[in-house]
Amino acid sequence: MSNYFHIVSALCRQIVKEGASNAALTQIERLQEAMKDDNLNKEANLLTRLIKKAHEESSLEPSRVQLSRANILSGQTLTPNTKPPSDKETGAPLCEIFFSDQTSHSVIPVLDDGLEKAVEGLISEWNNLPELQKIGVAPALTSLFFGAPGTGKTKLAYYIAKRLNLPLVVARLDGLVSSFLGTSARNITNLFDFASRYQCILLLDEFDAVAKARDDKQEVGEIKRIVNTLLQCLDSRSLNGITIAITNHETLLDPAVWRRFNARIFVPRPNAISRKKILEQYLPPLQINNIEMDFLIWMTDTYTGSDLENMSNTLKRHSIIHSKEQDNFIETIKAFLLVSSTDNTNNSRELVLGEEEGLAKALHESSFSQKNLAVLFNKHPSTISRWFAELRNKA
């Protein structure tokens, strides 16, 4: 092999000079590893420099290649019989495929006004591809959803796929990382190649697992190789398909990765109006009155949509198991809080679990009338007045 390496190296230089494709670069990397295995260190080092040069050139700026209008959302049709790609070392599938007629994730997510406008804007672009093509405008085919865990980013992606009537190819990127050298980059390439062959939306969950900053001193050199592969794949995918990435840790992302996304959408914790809509969605058939609903909205100020869903399910279970008991609403909420601590714990938790008088005072200061407090605590209005009088005397 070494006798002919000058010919092989010249071919590799020309490939890199003209802009190496993912497939070509993978073959050069395989050749480099073969050189190392045969102790041809001089030849391996030359290939290493070529690979490094190719990665550096590809990661300087996002791709400037003109979008091929004919290729947008082109490809074969995914069917239930289509097999997803798999890890060649373990045989584990690299993704799951969900079709729009699968309704397990079809619940319409509750969005605040700003987020709803952003999402509807994306859907409108993707639904009007021909009109955009006529005026030479490219739609935002790559989107990054970021925010705290449990805010509904993944559910939002499923909802978008259903609205567009497209299959969703879902990959948890932390599952693509392998202990075998070079396998992680190969898995990412195979995943993107698969998604680009079909009309679908590619959903990259746990995106920060492989898109970390390349200057992170805690990471080994392999992560740089993975990120470079990811950048190339995102550039290629942006020419012919919709990609949505999801992360809970946007600060960990490599700056070059941020630039690959046409749309970057923050998914916040729900505000008071949204929290009420979410509770109205998940609480039935459990019935609560307006005062109790106002109390839940007040108490869940820092809750995510996932937290609210979990609370609703717990309250429904409690109502069935303890149906014969005479617990008032506040006692039921206390029972929930004792077994449901979250990372979003706020001052309301301590108030609810504390003395009733202190909780009543806090609620009164936040706009609950004494009459409503009497209903909430199942007390006579005179009792509420006495509580406040005693608190004033203590002060």
Score class of each variant (00 low, 15 high):
49 R>P: 00
50 L>E: 06
50 L>P: 01
51 I>C: 04
51 I>A: 00
51 I>T: 01
52 K>I: 06
53 K>L: 11
53 K>Q: 07
53 K>M: 05
53 K>N: 12
55 H>D: 13
56 E>D: 11
56 E>C: 04
57 E>Q: 11
57 E>Y: 02
57 E>I: 08
58 S>P: 00
58 S>H: 00
59 S>Q: 06
59 S>K: 03
60 L>D: 11
60 L>Y: 04
61 E>H: 14
61 E>D: 08
62 P>R: 11
63 S>V: 06
65 V>A: 13
65 V>N: 08
66 Q>W: 02
67 L>K: 12
67 L>H: 04
67 L>C: 15
67 L>I: 15
67 L>A: 08
70 A>W: 04
71 N>V: 09
71 N>Y: 10
72 I>Q: 09
73 L>G: 05
73 L>Q: 10
73 L>H: 01
73 L>C: 04
74 S>V: 03
74 S>M: 08
74 S>R: 05
75 G>M: 13
78 L>H: 03
80 P>R: 13
80 P>N: 10
81 N>I: 01
81 N>K: 05
82 T>R: 04
82 T>I: 14
83 K>N: 09
83 K>W: 01
84 P>Y: 03
84 P>K: 01
84 P>R: 04
85 P>T: 11
86 S>G: 06
87 D>V: 04
87 D>C: 05
87 D>R: 11
87 D>T: 10
87 D>A: 10
88 K>G: 07
88 K>H: 09
89 E>R: 03
